[in-house]
Write a protein that binds this DNA or RNA. Sequence first.
DNA 1: TTTAGAGGTATTTTT
DNA 2: TACCTCTAAA
Length: 790
Amino acid sequence: MSDPFDDFPGFEPAAPRAGGGIAACALAAMHGGAPDFLSALNPEQRAAVETTEGPVLVLAGAGTGKTRVLTARIAHILAQGLARPHQILAVTFTNKAAREMRERIGALIGGEAEGMAWLGTFHAISTKILRRHAELAGLKSNFTILDTDDQIRLLKQVLRAENIDEKRWTARTLAFLIDNWKNRGLSPKTVPAGEAGAFANGKGGALYALYQERLKILNAADFGDLLLETLRVFRENPDVLREYQGRFKYLLVDEYQDTNAVQYLWLRLLAQRQAGAANEITPAQKPNLCCVGDDDQSIYGWRGADVDNILRFEKDFPGAKVIRLERNYRSTGHILAAAAHLIAHNRDRLGKTLFTDGEDGEKPEVSGVWDSEEEARVIGEEIEQLQRKGHSLDQVAILVRASFQMREFEERFITLGLPYKVIGGPRFYERLEIRDALAYLRCTAQPADDLAFERIVNTPKRGLGEASLQIVHDHARRQRIPLMQAARILIETEELKPKQRSTFRALLSDFDRWASQIGQKPHHELAEQILEESGYTDFWKQDKSAEAEGRLENLKELVRSMEEFPDLGAFLEHVSLVMDADAADGGERVSIMTLHGAKGLEFETVFLPGWEEGLFPHQRSLDENGRAGLEEERRLAYVGVTRARRRAKIYFATNRRIHGLWQTTTPSRFLDDLPAAHVQVTENRASGSGYGAYAQSRFANMDAFGSRYDTPGWKRAQQNGPGGRAPRTIEGEVLGKSSPGSAFSPGDRVFHLKFGPGAVAAVDGSKLTIDFDKAGRKLVLDSFVEKKSS
DNA sequence: TTTAGAGGTATTTTT
DNA sequence: TACCTCTAAA
């Protein structure tokens, strides 16, 4: 967010300013000639832009000009004088999307886009609202926003205080649970009893409540709170809600298929414009709500996104207009046909069929390779060939299902000298050194920030270990004061050892000195000084490991990036919401990223490796979510294929190393979902074992889900593995030896390297519940146990 | 307080 | 296999 601290613009519409882009556009409209941004649209897009009143759902297929519609719609609303910039609420999921939208609106209508104070992510907008009304949520308006790391540290404290065995019940698991509840709009009070009891023998709900209490004491909110607490403020304070309902004349939501329950509720409340007391939308008060999305590209279900939100839109908002954008401007005919055929296998969808007037182009190509190493080699060769033909590497991407697949490509490309970039690697602000540096800044600017203080109190090592910190902790807890304040008191007593006492004293006086300079000298210079004087820079300078240099470089980059912000506070706000920094990149590079990361992007040529059962669709998705999981995986495949403009190349390997073990794999069932007429199957020399004929595989005529992944081949692939490393021989041996269908079944006697002998109690895919003779009941993977013939 | 080794685990990721 | 986290010993 670019303007976290700006003031609320007044409610009264500002007088139109002369000379701006708006006036010019409006003028053009009046004279009959539509402004450029309208005339460039096709009829459906234009309808989506011009249907400004009432609820509208725009189902925008991949590559149909979704962003163009959204931005044109906003430009249109402004140009028509239907609303002022600050009366439009435009919500996105990522900062990147928000930034892009702002830029594109700016390009259409000029500087007026600057006035769009309410264009941002759900989280950024919620933060803005929550800061305004913090006291209604039990916070102060300068509350800190905790990231996942802080959150887990805090949860650990809660668990420890409650004497809960952290091995059995990890903070991570609890964080996951709480996040889940928050995503669904549940407060500690409203968590269903059954679920609350699922953690730590029934303490889940209580722990959630305790955690929330701790957050309030710390004057902090986690990401989930930003939405949930705002929702609470709205619900408990009708006057506040009404204020915002009245303010937003037009609401727009991007990627609506990705909304979760809280976001939906949040939106729904805001959309009920001055509705009466009841939760009803009377016809006269239909909200001017425009949601844009694509149910076929919903790939974040595991994160709480609820496809139902988009599937239900017409019921939720009676009288809604649904506009389908199906004309694709991105891909050639064969690619589109392949993608359409693939996604048609999903049941839960609203149904769209993309088409293009363009040429058919090249058919997507499917090739089998022996293993992942060959996969990387073949793809590397293909890319070099493209390069020789003059294709830009910027237009080439490799989209993988899981990030471990990236490594093989990186290694191959390094030996080839092929420039590449990995997108979606570790984020700038999540790096260790950056988080440490930020903790120093947070402590300086917000002395009550306990989590930041804890983080750096002994970084670099200064002899303030767990023992002395515990003393400070105890005191802080007893007095209900922040850690730093507690330390301040304790250094005047005998409770700490003399050495630690003087170290604390020195550290605190450092912070005092730095704090006194806030506002006195430019904040980026202050930051540099803090890092220098605290010994943090030296700490890395002395580190001789390979990364140290890069880390110092990152610290410099951090200081540099601070210059763009007006003050320290603004910078910290930016960081907590935008865990993202633009990396400048020079030169053309092949992009390597996950399928998830590729959503919204497009490339001339797309390589899609790893289309094998177990990896894609991912076994875990299948195990945990059954058909819904499979359909989400298929949507992911659809997203992958539709990223390609001209060339899509799909690969499956016969052997893949998973967790260090070689496994024989089965080609992905998604290959069977591709239409033969639009796909080119390449018989690769390496796929010798006849997998090239997958098109007529046993899956082809099966319609019942469920029977598909317990076929003999699949089971064999699952069992394969222990006992060797040379893939080629393993393949022969295992295929020869193992009798098909020899999966574990309840009652089998087994032997586990660590737990010893036991009996299988239950089988769940590759997961076995085993009653061990000595170690008791455990859940283990079948690849870790050996079957004993009894 | 630090560090070496054991143990456990193993998608996807934004805010 | 490979990584990360936590525990036990110096």
